[in-house]
Amino acid sequence: MAICGPKLSLCGLIISVWGVIQLALMGIFYWVEAVALAEDLPEIEEYHSLDDFYAQMTNGYQQNAYNCWIAALLYLITLAVSAHQFWLNNRSSLSV
């Protein structure tokens, strides 16, 4: 059954392909603790020593890496759904 129209499903398809690629890559960059992404971490409010600061940063990096991968997975699901919808739309438009 087709829920989305041809345009919406195409839009979903493109955004989810993009999302999967970019978020998976960003997850990797967070995992290797890229300095460029340091600004995009939850704020560290308090720390007692340099080691503590580092530990919290590492923690934040890892958490964000997981979050990015979760989002990438969600986009993978979106991709599957919109691909299915797209296929349905295409098929129905062909059969008419």
């Binding site: 958490q63 964000n64 997981y66 979050n67 990015c68 979760i70 989002a71 969600l74």
Partner: peptide
């Protein structure tokens, strides 16, 4: 966004 909710927020 802190914690696991971040995944949804990013999505």
């Amino acid at each position: 966004v802190e914690g696991w909710a971040g995944g949804i927020a990013v999505y």
